[in-house]
């Protein structure tokens, strides 16, 4: 996935991608910060890229907001620590969760360096205003995160966030295919990934 942060900045404070994802996946809107659940959200440069940010960073970066979500890492630490294999990596590289198996131990949350995972401290259902009846909710005591819309990919659709963006800021594609659109974009632009030095191999790229 490539996110063109210039486009996001131009159309700030657009949050269509976040609303689309959270609506179709029945992600609850919990106003109490400590119980918050999020699959995709925004944050500023120094939080998104703490190892790259410094106090002399230019004004443009300071004002820009960055979309953050699970990076579907190539070497996902969350998968290594999960004792039940509830979190696993699919053959196509997507880091997927099997909610039926999650025991809520939260090892994965400790292991993920990106804060991509949220724990259900409480029953999420009262906080889902307008549920999507075609997708399940979660229950109290499990961890959840972005699933790269596996249910939509299976139907030949794009991930909801990419589809929802009117400005085309989010592009998804096959990194393993050298002729894919996404590889072309990556060849032509300067991009950053989050915390690459940790060796997780994040698969979300940011055009700066």
């Amino acid at each position: 996935m490539v996110i063109d942060t210039r486009v996001c900045q131009k159309h700030a404070p657009c949050e269509d991608c976040i609303h689309a994802c959270h609506h179709i996946h029945n992600v609850p809107q919990i106003p109490y910060k400590k119980h918050e659940i999020k699959w995709i959200w925004k944050d500023e440069f120094e939080h998104a890229f703490p190892d790259t940010a410094h106090e002399y960073a230019n004004e443009v970066l300071k004002g820009r907001e960055f979309l953050l979500l699970c990076n579907h890492c190539e070497h996902p630490p969350c998968v290594r620590v999960c004792p039940t294999q509830a979190t696993f990596k699919r053959e196509d590289g997507i880091v997927m969760m099997d909610m039926h198996r999650c025991i809520g131990c939260r090892f994965c949350m400790a292991a993920c360096p990106y804060g991509s995972r949220s724990f259900n401290w409480r029953d999420p259902r009262p906080f889902i205003k307008d549920p999507n009846p075609e997708y399940p909710t979660r229950m109290k005591g499990v961890v959840e995160k972005c699933t790269f819309c596996t249910e939509r990919l299976a139907q030949g659709k794009l991930p909801a966030c990419a589809e929802a963006c009117k400005y085309g800021a989010i592009v998804v594609g096959d990194l393993a295919d050298p002729h894919s659109e996404i590889n072309k974009i990556l060849r032509e632009h300067f991009t950053l990934r989050r915390k690459v030095h940790l060796g997780t191999g994040p698969s979300v790229f940011y055009i700066i």
């Binding site: 809107q29 919990i30 106003p31 109490y32 400590k34 119980h35 909610m99 401290w121 409480r122 259902r125 009262p126 906080f127 889902i128 205003k129 307008d130 549920p131 009846p133 399940p136 909710t137 979660r138 229950m139 109290k140």
Partner: peptide, 30 residues
């Protein structure tokens, strides 16, 4: 617990968000 039965397709958001916030902050996470 997670799959939505036909009877509940309309949703559950019955309580006011404000009272839920107060309730949430007054309770320790179970």
């Amino acid at each position: 617990n997670c799959h939505i039965p036909p009877e509940e397709r309309k949703g559950w958001a019955t309580k006011e968000v404000k009272s839920l916030t107060e309730e949430a902050s007054s309770k320790q996470p179970a």
